[in-house]
Design a protein around this nucleic acid. Structure first.
Length: 302
DNA sequence: ATTACATGGCGTTTCCGTCA
DNA sequence: TGACGGAAACGCCATGTAAT
C-alpha cells in the first residue's frame, strides 16, 4: 500500500524509468502552495520560495533539501540561472513538470500549462520572477491599506482575442495580453478594482508601448459589449467593477519614458492609465507612487 | 580573501504505519 | 489506544564552487 494507491494521484513520470532515484512524497500544505505559485508565475527562484512559501523552515539547508526532494519525486524541475541582469551569480530557478501541472489540475480543476516551459527555459523567465515579486507585494501589503487582495489572474487567463468574425486575422489591435490582472477591493465588498499589469521590458520601444495602449483603448471603447464576455472567459473569482491599466518601468527614467511615449493618448484613453516603477511597486504599492497619464506631474494613489 | 549559493554527512527529532 | 520501530525530515556543520 503506497501513497499512489491511497490518493489516486497521477504516476510520477520517472518511476517508469530505470536507474533513476524514485521517490514518493506526501505533499504538505507548503508544497501545494509552491505548486500553485509555480502555476501562477511559471518560474520562481529559491530566494522567493524561501521568503514567501517555505516559511516554516529555520534554515536554508532545509529549503534546498525539500526542493530537491520534490524534484526527485517528479513534481518540479530546477535550472541554474542568473536571476537578475546585475547578479551574474546563478541561482536555482524552479518550474513545474507535467506531473506537477497535473497535480495543480487536480487541486484547481483547470490548468494552463505549456510543456515547453519545463523542457526549455524561455528568455522571459526573469520577467516572470519580477512579476511574482510585485504581485506578492500587492498581496502582502493590502491589509495595512485596509484592502483585500482578491485574486491574481495570470497572463494565460487574461489573454483575450475579441476579433469579429469578418475581421482580418492581421488585426493585432483586437486582442489584449496584459502580464496579468490584480483584483483588489475592500474586504467583504464586491466593488473590486481590476488592474491590468504591463511590466515593461528593459528596452521597451515606443512602438510596442503605443500598440499595447491602442489595444487597451480598443478593448475598453467597447466595454459594454466586451466586459461581460471577458468576465465569462476569464472566470473572475470576484466581480470587477472598475478597471485601470498599470505600466511598470524598471526604473524612474524608464517610467518617465513610458509617460512620454504615451503622451497625447490621454485624450482618447478609454481607461485610466497609471505608471510607476518596479521599486516603488515593491516598496509601497498602496502609496502615492502612481503618475496618471492625465496628470503626469503628480504622484497619487491607485 | 570574502561572500553567496548549493550539496553532503551526521546526530537528533518527528512522523506514521503496525501490532499488541 | 498506546507503545514500538523504521523512514523521513530537520538543524548544524563542513566542504565545494563561482563571482567580486
Amino acid at each position: 500500500m503506497n501513497n499512489r494507491d491511497m490518493n489516486n494521484a497521477p504516476l510520477p513520470p520517472q518511476v517508469k524509468k530505470k536507474g533513476r532515484k524514485m521517490r514518493y512524497v506526501t505533499l504538505r500544505e507548503e508544497d501545494r502552495q509552491l505548486l500553485l505559485h509555480l502555476h501562477s508565475f511559471i518560474y520562481l527562484h529559491r530566494g522567493f520560495i524561501e521568503k514567501y512559501i517555505f516559511q516554516t523552515y529555520e534554515n536554508v539547508d532545509s529549503v534546498y533539501r525539500r526542493l530537491r526532494t520534490l524534484e526527485e519525486a517528479g513534481y518540479i524541475k530546477s535550472f541554474m540561472l542568473p536571476i537578475s541582469d546585475f547578479d551574474h551569480r546563478p541561482s536555482k530557478v524552479y518550474t513545474l513538470t507535467m506531473f506537477g501541472a497535473e497535480i495543480v489540475e487536480q487541486m484547481r480543476g483547470v490548468v494552463h500549462w505549456n510543456r515547453r516551459w519545463t523542457t526549455q527555459v524561455p528568455p522571459w523567465y526573469q520577467h516572470q520572477l519580477m512579476i511574482a515579486e510585485i504581485v506578492k507585494s500587492y498581496e502582502l501589503k493590502a491589509e495595512t491599506a485596509g484592502l483585500e487582495f482578491k485574486e491574481w489572474v495570470t497572463e494565460a487567463r487574461a489573454f483575450y482575442e475579441f476579433r469579429d468574425i469578418n475581421e482580418s486575422k492581421k488585426n493585432h489591435n483586437s486582442r489584449i495580453r496584459p502580464d496579468g490582472i490584480l483584483v483588489i477591493g475592500k474586504p467583504n465588498s464586491d466593488q473590486n478594482l481590476g488592474i491590468m499589469i504591463e511590466m515593461e521590458r528593459s528596452y521597451a520601444t515606443r512602438e510596442k508601448t503605443l500598440r499595447k495602449m491602442e489595444q487597451f483603448n480598443e478593448f475598453f471603447s467597447r466595454k459594454e459589449e466586451l466586459l461581460p464576455k471577458y468576465d465569462k472567459k476569464v472566470g473572475f473569482e470576484h466581480p470587477v467593477k472598475a478597471w485601470k491599466v498599470l505600466f511598470i518601468g524598471s526604473n524612474d527614467a524608464k517610467a518617465k519614458k513610458i509617460l512620454r511615449d504615451l503622451k497625447g493618448e490621454e485624450n482618447h484613453a478609454e481607461v485610466s492609465v497609471m505608471v510607476t516603477t518596479r521599486q516603488e511597486a515593491n516598496m509601497d504599492p498602496y502609496g502615492d507612487i502612481y503618475r496618471y497619464l492625465s496628470d503626469p506631474e503628480t504622484k497619487r494613489k491607485m
